[in-house]
Design a protein around this nucleic acid. Structure first.
Lengths: 334, 334
DNA sequence: GTTATTCCGGCAATCGTTTGCGGGACCAAG
DNA sequence: CTTGGTCCCGCAAACGATTGCCGGAATAAC
């Protein structure tokens, strides 16, 4: 239970005032070089580490060196990759990361948003739970820098970095059609999320461009969780006239769909072709290897953190909006 | 840029002293009921949220309601599940989570450990980078509650929750042997981690029990990352006399090994059987479905957080040590 | 020698809480 | 009427940093 040294201890040992110590640490104000040396020495000898809490309390604005990241679920590999991207740039800039999972639960999102403000984070990265997320807007109004990732906010002029979901889905479904499929089932996401909507739009546009008519019984909406992928896939594939191909709108639901297919004993791609959204672990060594549209999750995180850091430095800079391109990785499942 | 209300604002509005407000919030000290009501009302009207930073600064000890979790890599599904377990119990108890990835990098681990102390977290959950991790020990000596997960620390009498790695590996390799394999390759982990060592011990013990002699050329050591799984698998399988079965000691390396097998065009389990450590996404729908020893990662996280919370509440309680049982899931890859 | 300028570094307020201490008000007992 | 005891609640000192302001010393200019 050793006492952790504070500014005072350093000041005492170097025989200077605490303000002098503070100034040598932060390189602010003019301090004589021999005084600096004395202070440095004292700090080294005591193993002094500045107290981030005190620092954050004092300087409400500016670099308290803490970033907040609020995501639906870290178990979703997409968000894990994204988080990793954020973390890497945070670490490079000496920022720590407050990470929370809100599970698509609005109350939880609110709670964590409160925590972040209460912790005086320098900025927050978040995929808003839906397009008009009042809680997020409130945080922005309070002056906390926010950048939206993955999903966007309809109002509020915020920094954001997204993936071009429309083009991703479009390419995927065009590819399915090019493979000769005409009855294509889709397991989409919630329509109040921009990702869900954009991917569905891609699905529809691909049909339109090919002159295909949509079959409403083949359009299902999941909740981006594994379970829903499974039930909808099972339902679709046990239809009297089942689809010959499936387009699944996120990774977790893809896993569920694959489970359903395995349970039904269907062969991919002969009996049912499938293409997913999100690269999965093992997708390339799966049998057959999975055709998916890969989202650059890590890069999304990286860019988001970049943007956030820039905004923290200069709160007045105009909001920028990035849209990264997903990549259709054609393997053997379709 | 609305001003966030503080205790003072509430006090002013309720026409009481700030200490009274503080006391009604924390239920400490006797406060008249009509005064309490007035304060509650003022808080509601102003939308007051206590400032966690100030609170943490003031009370160095006790519930600042922040937990630290330092893990190697969130992209490793084992740690993602574990993190989720921690997070769930943290949330239930109104704790937030400071999450960091140290990437098996000692400098990074040190940095984050410093950050956590500097942030005055209530406690830390960490898989120590190796058995005699001086940085972790130092933190413990400073009086911060720590619980070790997954890997343990040889000295220091700490709370810990681990998986029984020996029995897991033993069962796995026994199963491989029962399938008739005699030349079994292993891709192990670093020997300075308890997990790496215990799993290898299981491997050896299984051989001993079956009266098999170890072939040293079939024993390889990776670093628990994907890449190393791939190169060692390739090397093993291109030996003049390759093993007929592989035991891979963690999930990431398993992915690498499967890549190598796919690249080599080998058929599982006919040409090479394989069993891994850690359940992987898609493992059960893989072709063939993967035989693995599943670690209860989520439960490890849950228990660890439980233990940590208990210790925070009562720092003097004797250290407890949990060992959870892994489960051998026999599917078709061996 | 006097005044002005520069350079350093100390003093003290501040951030938003918690908390030990003390004191006023009120009531009951003597 | 005095004394003693509760019961509330206010005062002010922490926690560990940052920072505006000021003043002393040293040097330079006159």
């Amino acid at each position: 239970m050793k006492k952790i040294p504070s500014l005072i201890d350093v000041a005492l040992r170097a025989k200077v005032n605490i303000s002098t110590v503070s100034r040598t640490i932060n390189q602010t104000g003019k301090i004589g070089s021999e005084t600096q040396a004395r202070v440095q020495k004292a700090m080294r000898e005591l193993g002094y580490k500045p107290n981030r809490v005190a620092r954050r309390l004092r300087t409400q604005e500016g670099s308290t060196h803490l970033l907040g990241l609020i995501i639906p679920n870290i178990q979703n590999i997409f968000f894990a990759d994204l988080a990793r991207g954020v973390e890497d740039v945070a670490y490079k800039n000496n920022f720590a990361l407050l990470l929370c999972n809100y599970d698509e639960d609005e109350a939880k999102e609110r709670f964590y948003l409160d925590v972040m403000q209460s912790e005086s984070v320098d900025g927050i990265i978040i995929p808003p739970i839906h397009e008009t997320d009042p809680a997020v807007l409130q945080v922005v109004r309070n002056g906390t820098p926010v950048v939206c990732v993955d999903r966007s906010l309809s109002s509020g002029n915020l920094d954001k970095v997204e993936v071009d979901n429309h083009i991703g889905a479009l390419r995927a479904v065009e590819h399915i059609i090019a493979r000769g499929h005409r009855r294509i089932g889709v397991i989409g996401g919630p329509l109040d999320s921009s990702t869900g909507r954009e991917r569905l739009r891609g699905f529809k546009d691909a049909h339109a461009k090919a002159g295909l008519t949509l079959k409403s019984e083949l359009i299902r909406f999941g909740d981006f969780k594994q379970e829903s992928g499974q039930v909808h896939a099972r339902e679709l594939l046990t239809l009297p006239e089942p689809p010959t191909a499936l387009f699944v709108c996120n990774g977790l639901m893809m896993v569920g769909a694959l489970e359903a297919i395995a349970a039904l004993g269907l062969k991919i791609p002969r009996q049912v072709a499938i293409v997913g959204f999100d690269e999965l672990t093992l997708a390339d060594v799966f049998n057959p290897p999975l055709t998916v549209v890969r989202q650059p999750a890590y890069e999304v995180g990286k860019w988001a953190a970049d943007l956030l850091l820039k905004r923290i430095e200069d709160p007045k800079r105009p909001a920028s909006s990035l849209k990264l391109l997903p990549e259709l990785i054609i393997r053997k499942s379709c």
